[in-house]
Design a protein around this nucleic acid. Structure first.
Lengths: 193, 193
DNA sequence: GTCTATAGATGGATAGAC
DNA sequence: GTCTATCCATCTATAGAC
């Protein structure tokens, strides 16, 4: 990807994050990238394709992060800890793109929408599988694993909307606090303090 | 509030929910309300005031729901259960408005933004107070009550974005599953099955 | 690969009749 | 309280020169 294309994408990420897709115009993006708005169309055929580009790299990188965190980790509890840690730290490190991917899904035209819903569902199913296995092995308490997975994932996704980089806690500290809370919720028994 | 004003508001809620504030035009709203777009300005001075009206009633009703659920309830665990139940059922019953209030905050001009952020923070502080008291009384496990409160509230807010009215579970069943999960997370000990 | 110029549609909002 | 007509700004996207 050429320098200017990457530059346009970077500017778009900042603007879509700050103002949202519809409130950001091609003129704003052009201004940020220091070119004329017509020049953007040399790199992207239309506005939606900029958003699609952001969606694709974000979701793909999220999946890669999960896979690398789960590699060679065994046991439902350990795998759950690793998966949550991956999800939370990714949503903090890639805060802007994560917020875009979380809030602009409905902007997409039908084919793009279907593609990314499919990818998201596939990602969620990996969390559900871990919870289900933990319950079957008796490590996690019996509960509705689908509802619990929605709760856990939305809680950890939302971190990108309230985490403050200048705040009192690092991203790893926040991740550890939430991992503890979630594992207690899943196991329903106290860990030694 | 006159019939037509209420009608306009109802149409706007449906459109802001489905397409978002910026993707909804005054023409769309007028079409839904079966009047001309100029007629809307007799009821609202501008587009933002429609959104502000939705925000105000939603947040006020959310606060009222919490207060009525907490009335005469004693003890941190009972109060937490009641507060979460209130939050979740409200976000399902008022799904559309809840999604709008959750996703269109950044649209507001500065004075309106400050007003609703203040109301939201005030609401969140009530949850934080219950968690803090529960920890001090030794009912809840020691943890960072602010981070945990963000986690709990965002998880329960997000219910409005995935709950399916035609799905297999009622809103009370979903609320109970999540209340159980959260209380286990806060207490860190298993309840008798 | 970037530019100027512009098409063509749509946006929020107002004026003034009825 | 609702209408028609219109203003003016801004939007996405394209044409064609350099």
């Amino acid at each position: 990807m050429g320098d200017m294309k990457q530059n346009i994408k970077r500017v778009a990420i900042n603007l879509f994050y700050k103002k949202g897709y519809y409130a950001t115009s091609m003129s704003h993006i052009a201004q940020g990238a220091k070119i004329q708005k017509a020049s953007i169309y040399h790199h992207y055929p239309n506005k939606e394709e900029i958003l699609v580009d952001i969606f694709r790299t974000t979701i793909e990188d999220l999946e890669k992060s999960l896979e690398s965190h789960l590699k060679d980790v065994r046991g439902a509890e350990n795998r759950m800890c690793a998966a949550i840690h991956s999800h939370i730290t990714f949503h903090i490190e890639r805060q802007k793109e994560a917020i875009i991917a979380d809030s602009e899904l409905r902007v997409l035209t039908v084919n793009n929408y279907k593609t990314f819903i499919r990818m998201r569902d596939n990602y969620e199913r990996k969390f559900q599988k871990i919870i289900k296995e933990g319950i079957e092995e008796g490590i996690f308490k019996q509960s509705d694993y689908k509802i619990v997975s929605y709760g856990i994932l939305t809680m950890c996704t939302a971190v990108c909307s309230w985490f403050n980089n200048a705040g009192r806690l690092t991203k790893d500290e926040v991740a550890n606090i939430l991992v503890d809370f979630i594992i207690r919720g899943l196991k329903g028994e106290s860990k030694p303090v």
